[in-house]
Simulated scan of single mutants.
Amino acid sequence: MTIATPLSSDVDLFSDETLADPYPQYKALRDLGPAVHLSRHGLWFISRYDQVRSALGDWETFSSGQGIGLNPGFNEAWASALINMDPPAQTEQRKLFTDRLSPRALRPVAESIDQRAEELVDDLVARRTFDAVTDLAQDLPVHVIMDLIGWPQEGRDQLLDMAAGWFDSSGPVCPRTAAAVPKVEALMGFLAEVVTKENLVPGGFGWTMIEAHKAGRIPVEGAIGLLAGYVVAAFDTTISAISSGMWLFARHPEQWDLLRADPSLVPSAFNEIVRVESPIQVFSRVTTRDVDLGEGVVIPSGARVLHSYGAANRDERHFPDPDRFDVTRNPVDHLAFGYGNHGCAGQGLARLEVHAVLKALTARVQRIELTGEPVRALNNITRGFRTLPVRVS
């Protein structure tokens, strides 16, 4: 096959300025073509909805087997993690996730999640002003997920910072990536100690990992990787969705009025929140053959490809008026949780938690207002806030 001259851009998607507001750059890259070569980082970037969805559904062409990180250190350190595998090895280990996170398996915890959300919101409404990240968004993921894992009470607070470091450490070689490495090393050491000492409550997901390791189904590195994947992914998606939702509703009070008037829109609102502000912005894979995407664009075999959920979910070719936040849109085909064999296994739990918070808020809160300037948590992979001061009435 003749390789066409690639469309190229020297934009730095990992600069502070772009991470704070990536959407103008995403649109410019979408308009260039179905894929663009990012010369600064030696990557191909896919940002249109149809091409991203197609790539995510074709693991044989867009392989995760060489790692999803943008630097060799991350991919080598986490080679045994589920996210860095292709079938058939991935299929067996993923079943450990899906069995424990299926709708049927989560049904017994749904009521307790609703109750905790109601108690939490009651407390925050009484306070009137609070930080929507640390006081609201972090509460359910830390406690619910840790209980499901069977994690001891000790050490729970440390995991949030370490989890954020995991995503940052998968970025390209740059100061932000390097600064995250000590956090990830601490996370690996922490998880390894927990697995080795079997310091988990029997019956939880973590104990399932230990039993699978003892039975020879997965190596110890695999148990640690699965545990890390459960912790990291579940934290970031849920915390980002809740805090981004608060930010969006503070900026669009008319949408909050719609949701309060019709709480049955909560599932639709959730889908719209994660479409507009996708918790995971990008991941990468490696091509196993030349890929012709049309318009004269051919990605060569062996290329590192960055596919962007955040850009695809704002693609005007698929979503009309994509930058508009509309809780009645119900974009059930959004790509915020990925697609295909690496679609987020924990998305059912994230939905339960965010739905519970939104339902509790609509029943108690008339208005959400910002009381200060929000601070973004700049991260190579994820999108969210560090602080989000709000007032509710």
Rank of each mutant, 00 (worst) to 15 (best):
residue 317 R to Y: 06
residue 385 F to D: 02
residue 157 D to Y: 04
residue 170 S to A: 15
residue 327 V to K: 02
residue 129 T to K: 08
residue 279 P to N: 11
residue 115 Q to K: 11
residue 324 R to D: 10
residue 296 G to F: 12
residue 177 T to R: 07
residue 250 A to P: 12
residue 17 E to L: 09
residue 386 R to D: 03
residue 136 L to K: 13
residue 35 A to Y: 04
residue 391 R to T: 13
residue 58 D to P: 01
residue 62 F to P: 00
residue 172 P to H: 12
residue 116 R to K: 14
residue 289 R to V: 13
residue 32 L to N: 03
residue 308 S to H: 01
residue 77 A to R: 08
residue 150 G to F: 03
residue 285 R to E: 09
residue 225 G to I: 13
residue 113 I to A: 11
residue 292 D to E: 10
residue 368 I to F: 12
residue 127 R to V: 03
residue 223 A to W: 08
residue 308 S to F: 06
residue 119 E to D: 09
residue 207 W to I: 02
residue 120 L to F: 06
residue 334 H to V: 04
residue 150 G to M: 03
residue 148 L to F: 11
residue 86 D to L: 03
residue 125 V to M: 09
residue 387 T to A: 03
residue 194 V to I: 15
residue 220 V to M: 14
residue 356 A to S: 15
residue 111 E to T: 12
residue 167 F to S: 14
residue 225 G to Y: 13
residue 283 F to M: 13
residue 355 H to V: 00
residue 391 R to Y: 08
residue 3 I to R: 14
residue 244 S to K: 05
residue 161 D to V: 10
residue 189 G to V: 06
residue 206 G to I: 02
residue 389 P to G: 11
residue 257 D to G: 05
residue 389 P to N: 07
residue 219 P to A: 10
residue 30 R to M: 01
residue 49 Y to E: 00
residue 214 K to N: 08
residue 140 L to M: 07
residue 3 I to M: 10
residue 291 V to G: 10
residue 95 K to G: 00
residue 356 A to D: 09
residue 158 Q to E: 14
residue 287 T to Q: 04
residue 73 G to L: 12
residue 249 F to L: 14
residue 97 F to C: 02
residue 95 K to D: 03
residue 168 D to Q: 04
residue 382 T to N: 11
residue 391 R to W: 09
residue 196 T to P: 04
residue 294 G to S: 11
residue 84 N to Q: 13
residue 245 G to P: 04
residue 72 P to G: 08
residue 108 P to H: 03
residue 344 C to L: 09
residue 153 Q to K: 07
residue 2 T to K: 06
residue 219 P to Q: 10
residue 214 K to P: 06
residue 199 N to M: 06
residue 97 F to S: 04
residue 212 A to Y: 00
residue 363 A to K: 15
residue 76 E to H: 13
residue 50 D to W: 04
residue 381 I to Y: 00
residue 121 V to K: 05
residue 249 F to T: 01
residue 147 D to N: 09
residue 150 G to E: 09
residue 31 D to C: 08
residue 125 V to A: 14
residue 224 I to L: 06
residue 243 S to D: 03
residue 309 Y to M: 14
residue 250 A to G: 12
residue 59 W to C: 00
residue 4 A to D: 13
residue 273 I to M: 14
residue 287 T to K: 00
residue 149 I to V: 15
residue 213 H to K: 05
residue 200 L to R: 05
residue 78 W to Y: 07
residue 15 S to G: 12
residue 82 L to P: 01
residue 222 G to P: 04
residue 21 D to C: 13
residue 322 P to L: 09
residue 40 R to L: 15
residue 254 E to L: 04
residue 172 P to D: 04
residue 296 G to C: 05
residue 161 D to G: 13
residue 385 F to M: 06
residue 368 I to N: 01
residue 8 S to E: 15
residue 277 E to C: 10
residue 206 G to D: 04
residue 154 E to M: 01
residue 150 G to A: 10
residue 114 D to Q: 11
residue 126 A to C: 00
residue 287 T to F: 01
residue 261 A to T: 02
residue 133 V to R: 10
residue 217 R to M: 14
residue 267 P to L: 11
residue 229 G to H: 09
residue 84 N to M: 06
residue 324 R to I: 11
residue 166 W to D: 07
residue 27 K to S: 07
residue 361 L to Y: 11
